[in-house]
Amino acid sequence: MQRTTNISDDELKLIQMRCNNATKGPWVSYVEDRDHTSGGNFIMTGDNNNRGEDIELIGATIADQEFIAHARQDIPRLINEIRRLKQLLTDIKSS
Rank of each mutant, 00 (worst) to 15 (best):
R83F: 03
K86A: 09
I82M: 01
T90N: 10
P26E: 00
N80G: 15
N50K: 11
A63Y: 00
G46A: 03
I75A: 01
S29L: 02
K24I: 14
S38L: 10
L57Q: 03
K93H: 13
E66S: 04
E32G: 01
R83T: 08
A60P: 04
T45S: 02
I82D: 03
R3S: 13
Q87F: 09
L14I: 15
K93R: 14
G46P: 11
I55W: 05
H70K: 13
M44T: 09
I62M: 03
F67R: 14
R77K: 11
E56K: 15
L57A: 14
E11L: 10
N20D: 15
W27V: 10
N20A: 14
N20C: 07
T61Y: 06
N48G: 09
Q2G: 12
D47V: 08
D91I: 03
I15H: 04
I62W: 01
E11A: 09
R18W: 09
L12T: 13
H36Q: 09
S94W: 04
E81Q: 14
D74V: 08
I79F: 00
T45N: 06
V31K: 05
H70V: 06
A69N: 03
E53P: 11
Q65F: 00
T4K: 04
R18N: 13
H70C: 08
R34C: 04
L88S: 11
F42P: 01
L88D: 06
R34G: 00
S29F: 02
N49F: 06
R72L: 07
P76E: 11
M1P: 08
T61F: 00
T4D: 02
D47S: 05
M44I: 05
I79D: 02
I79V: 15
K93G: 08
K93N: 12
L57T: 03
D74T: 13
D33K: 03
I55D: 00
S8N: 04
H36E: 00
R3I: 06
M17G: 03
L57F: 14
R72F: 03
E11P: 06
E56I: 15
Q87T: 10
R72G: 10
K93T: 03
W27D: 09
N80H: 12
L85E: 12
